[in-house]
Design a protein around this nucleic acid. Structure first.
Lengths: 223, 223
DNA sequence: AACAGGTATATCAATATTGATATAGCAACA
DNA sequence: TGTTGCTATATCAATATTGATATACCTGTT
C-alpha cells in the first residue's frame, strides 16, 4: 500500500507520471523506487478512489501530459497515513539470500570474492548518498550541521541511508576478516576461537586473492 | 526472481510448502519473507520448469503433503545464481517514506513521537536477532566469537541484520536529538548551527513528551 | 515533404506479493 | 455418531512490481 501514499505525498505539488518517475530516481531512491508501469496504474486507481484529480495539459517537449493533483480526500488520507505510526514492512536483501546459501559452493574464496564485490557496490552507493549530503550541508567548525531550515525530514531520511549503508560496509570488513582467518586455518582445525575485532577493524585488504584454500566448511548448522 | 532461487536453496533438503513457510518465519525473516500464497505457486512454476520435482506423501497430522526436492537442473540453477555476483535490488522502507513527508503535519512533536515509536520497534527487532546470535555463539574472554564451524554463511547474514538495525537505532537517537534541539529553538530563529554529536551520542531520553512546541518548520528544500 | 533519431509520455504482459479464504484430517466432546 | 475446534495444507483474488514495448511530438537532415 505504500506506493499509493508516497504518490499522495509527492503530489502535494501537481505533477505528471513522467515527472514522478524522475523524483523517485533522483530524490527518494534510497528508500523507495518505482517504474512507470507501476506509477501510471496507481495514479489511475487513486483518481478512481477520488484521492487525486487530473487534467490534461499540452507539453513543451512531447505528447500531452496528464497532470495529477491532490484532492481534499487525498490530503486527508495522506495525513491519516502519516499519523498511523511507523509502517514496519519486512526488509529484503537478495544478496544476503545469496550469501546464506553460499556454503553450497564449498569454497570460501568464492565467498570472499562475493563479499569484496558487495563491499565495492555498497561503497559506491554510500558515496552517492554522501555527495548529496555534502550538497545540502555546510561545514562549520569542522563539524557537519544538521540541515537546519526546511527539509529537516528529508535530510533525516538521507542520514538513515548513510548510516545504514555505512554499517553494511563495516559488516563487509568484519566478514572479510573472518573469512581470511578461516581460510588461513590448516585443514581439520575447527571451532578455534575467532574473536571478532571491534568496530572499525582495519584489517582485511580488499584485493580478491590472498591466501590459499585449505580447509572447507562442512555441516548445516543454521541460525 | 529471488524467491525462486531462495526456494531452490532451501530445498537442498526436501520439504513441503508448509514447512518452507516456517523456515521463512523462523530463520530468514531478517532478509526475506514469503506467504503461502507466494510459496505454492512458485513451487509449481519451478516444477514446471524442471528445477524441482515433487511426490505426495501422507502426513502425520493433516492432509497429504506435496514434498518438493531439487533436480539436477535445479541445483545447477542455484549454483549459477550464487556465482552471478551480488544482486543489488533497491531497498524499501515505508517508515522512511512516512518520515520524508511528515513536514506536512507541521508539528515536530508528531515527528518526535513517530521516531520514538520507531526506535522502540527497531530495538525489539534487534533484541530478537541478538537473542539468536547469543544462542549460536560462545563467550570467550569477554569477546564474542564468530561462529566457527558449519553455519558460517548463515551467521554472517545474521550479523548484517544486527549491525544494520543497530545503526538504525543510532540514527533514531541522532534524529531525536536534532528534533529536540529544533523544538527548543525560539520562534523565528533559523539556520542556527546544529552540530551533530558523533557516534554514540548519549543524549535524548526516550520519553515522548519533553519541551514545548515553539517554532514550526517551513519551506520545501528537498535533498 | 519525408525521414531519422531523440526525448517525453504512457501501456502491456509477466511475475511477485499480500491477505483472505478454503479444505483435509485428527481429537475431543455432546 | 454428529459436532466442534484445531492444526496442517493449500488456493484464490486483489494488488504491487518489473521489464519490455508502444505512441507522440520535436528537431534536424535529406
Amino acid at each position: 500500500m505504500s506506493l499509493q501514499h508516497i504518490l499522495l505525498g509527492l503530489l502535494r505539488e501537481p505533477a505528471a507520471g513522467y515527472d514522478l518517475k524522475a523524483v523517485f530516481d533522483e530524490r527518494i531512491s534510497h528508500f523507495w523506487s518505482a517504474e512507470f508501469g507501476q506509477i501510471y496504474p496507481t495514479l489511475n486507481r487513486l483518481e478512481e478512489r477520488g484521492l487525486l484529480e487530473s487534467r490534461v495539459e499540452p507539453s513543451e517537449k512531447g505528447p500531452n501530459r496528464r497532470v495529477y493533483s491532490l484532492t481534499a480526500d487525498g490530503r486527508e488520507e495522506l495525513l491519516r497515513w502519516l499519523g498511523s505510526g511507523p509502517a514496519m514492512g519486512a526488509e529484503r536483501f537478495a544478496y544476503l539470500a545469496q550469501l546464506y546459501f553460499m556454503d553450497a559452493l564449498g569454497d570460501l574464496h568464492e565467498t570472499r570474492a562475493f563479499m569484496t564485490a558487495l563491499k565495492q557496490r555498497l561503497r559506491e552507493w554510500l558515496g552517492r548518498l554522501e555527495a548529496i549530503e555534502a550538497a545540502v550541508t555546510t561545514s562549520h567548525g569542522g563539524a557537519t550541521e544538521y540541515y537546519s531550515d526546511g527539509g529537516f525530514h528529508q535530510f533525516a531520511t538521507l542520514r538513515m541511508g548513510i548510516l545504514s549503508i555505512g554499517s553494511k560496509v563495516e559488516w563487509c570488513d568484519e566478514t572479510l576478516a573472518a573469512i581470511d582467518r578461516r581460510i588461513a586455518l590448516p585443514a581439520g582445525v575447527e571451532a578455534t576461537a575467532e574473536c571478532r575485532s571491534g568496530r572499525g577493524a582495519p584489517s582485511a585488504p580488499d584485493g580478491s586473492g590472498s591466501g590459499t584454500h585449505v580447509g572447507s566448511p562442512r555441516g548445516e548448522v543454521a541460525s
